[in-house]
Write a protein that binds this DNA or RNA. Structure first.
Lengths: 138, 138
DNA sequence: CTTGACTCTGGACTATAGTCCATACCCTAA
DNA sequence: TTAGGGTATGGACTATAGTCCAGAGTCAAG
């Protein structure tokens, strides 16, 4: 596979060209080489790596986590368990976030339900009332 | 109620003193007055307003949204419906976010389940395999 | 040989929600 | 009067994930 320039890689990965350079600064995606004039050169592996990054991001991993996973994935001594650990931690994280949001949503629904809405004057707004109430507000 | 200084307000609202100044820069929480020497002075209303902000934040509203709600809440012409609209939009937003996270979590569980884990070599890792796969990646 | 497209670099800027800092002034109690 | 705590200000810095820009160099086609 012929070497490709940064623009081609960016197109292949469907990302902004500056994003590729950003990933390089973050040590996530280094060029295989540079031409004599300093142009970055990438291979098919870079495309796969870039797609890895985008896919993992889509699954909620941060670039930091992705960096660690990439480190593991290129470490010949590493084992499946190392990666699986990340995935399982991420699953737990997401579940916690969902549960948080459900609580928030439930609370919001409750106070919104009680609010008359429409052209009722603000004094009757139970949402504002709730926000202004004197309870322990974390 | 006697005027209070910024430190007292911060303690009453359980926030950092710089956070109060930050809210001022964002036009969310202006002091009622300044002493001759320039000290900010706050009233009990400020405490209620600060608590409003924190409570609404806890419910997932951004400072921008909170600012708009506060504007409405001090506008004598405003109606319940204006506030209720915000709450309902926020409920929809949160529900969408939950649904996104559930999708992500489901996908992650599926690929993690298939992964042998433990000391299995990385070539068998279905998580990495998934990330490296050539599918359309968003 | 020139033109246009591409790439290089470093640094600035976006959004969000703060936190921290130095320097200087103010206020109160001993 | 002096020590200490509180406060003022502007600006820098954090984290995350980029995006954009200017000025300069490179490359390939006509």
């Amino acid at each position: 596979m012929a070497a490709m320039a940064i623009g081609q890689l960016a197109r292949a990965g469907n990302v902004n060209i500056d994003t590729v350079r950003y990933y390089e600064r973050k040590n996530l995606l280094l060029p295989d080489a540079r031409t004599q004039s300093g142009y970055r050169q990438y291979s098919g592996d870079s495309v796969r790596r870039l797609r890895f990054i985008r896919k993992a991001q889509g699954l909620g991993f941060s670039l930091k986590e992705i960096g660690k996973m990439l480190d593991i994935s290129t470490n010949t001594d590493a084992e499946c368990g190392n990666i699986k650990q990340y995935a399982e931690k991420k699953i737990t994280d997401i579940q916690a976030r969902i549960s948080d949001l459900e609580k928030i949503c439930g609370g919001l629904k409750q106070i919104a339900k009680a609010c008359p809405g429409g052209d009722s004057p603000l004094e009757n707004c139970t949402i504002l009332e709730h926000f202004y109430k004197n309870e322990a507000s974390q």
